[in-house]
């Protein structure tokens, strides 16, 4: 299929709404599982959107902005995965790989804004010093508008204007390359998990990582809910144990301090 102008504009609108949400992190509709589904709806293939959403969400499971690094943009990755899969009849797993360059480009645009929006700070400082609430509020809309429009324009160019060259590129790809992209889509979650581990993994938590890994390898269940429940059990046990230990420490401290310290 090809993307019509109306569909292209709808995708731009979707990118603006979810892109704004990506900037503010309010509703989390910027996650691939939502963006892909809605893109599928626009293109008239909801099922493809949902399937691509599941796969892309997994690929981005650990790629969060929390570790201090801005990951490839989920909005553009979500949109382009569905667009590429729908217009070129490739599998969603292959499309994830092909959509990554778009997601990375958007990531660099955002990184550029993170640096360049520092230029607004002296204006904010000035309005704050003057106590000018109205101007301060108004100035906050400028970055929001710049970001929202950037998402819309970039998504429109990627999804609508670039579809012919994209089609030519995908068609000229040899089978081993398409298959390679498909494999990469399946391995990609590893990057996110490694990034999560970099932030979270301390030696004392390694046993829990291993526990979750072994359970999931041994039981065949369609999702990680049982693993999460077992993790929850251990978290609860540790929570109460730590509370108990800290209460004990308090008591010991009280005894050490003697009677004259009573009633602080």
């Amino acid at each position: 299929m090809t993307i019509t102008l109306v569909q292209g504009l709808l995708i731009a609108l979707l990118a603006m709404i979810t892109g704004l949400d990506c900037w503010l992190q309010a509703f989390f509709i910027f996650r691939p599982i939502i963006v892909c589904t809605l893109t599928g709806l626009i293109l008239g293939d909801l099922r493809l959107g949902v399937i691509a959403g599941g796969l892309t969400e997994l690929a981005f499971a650990g790629l969060t902005p929390a570790g201090g690094t801005q990951p490839p943009n989920t909005v553009l990755c979500g949109i382009m995965t569905v667009v590429i899969a729908a217009t070129n009849n490739t599998s969603p797993a292959t499309a994830i790989g092909l959509s990554l360059p778009f997601a990375m480009l958007m990531q660099y645009i955002l990184l550029f804004y993170y640096s360049s929006f520092s230029l607004f700070m002296s204006k904010f400082d000035k309005y704050a010093a003057e106590g000018n609430a109205q101007k301060f509020k108004r100035l906050n809309f400028v970055p929001l508008i710049i970001v929202t429009l950037s998402f819309g324009i970039f998504a429109f160019l990627s999804a609508y204007a670039a579809q012919a060259p994209m089609h030519a590129l995908v068609n000229s790809m040899p089978q081993w390359l398409t298959h390679g992209f498909e494999l990469a889509g399946g391995i990609l979650p590893a990057v996110g998990f490694a990034m999560l581990l970099k932030v979270m993994l301390k030696p004392r938590y390694f046993p829990y990582l291993l526990l979750g890994f072994v359970i999931a390898s041994m039981i065949s269940f369609s999702n990680v809910l049982p693993v999460a429940l077992i993790g929850g059990v251990f978290a609860a046990i540790e929570y109460f144990r730590t509370r108990e230990v800290s209460d004990l420490k308090e008591q010991i401290k009280d005894i050490d301090n003697g009677d004259d310290q009573d009633g602080i």
Binding site: G62, I187, P189, M200, A216, S217, I230, A235, E238
Partner: peptide, 20 residues
Amino acid sequence: HAASILGLTVIGGLIASYVK
């Protein structure tokens, strides 16, 4: 501390289930 335990158990499970 408790959230880390839960989170890491889940990540262990995710590695086994979702990295192909």
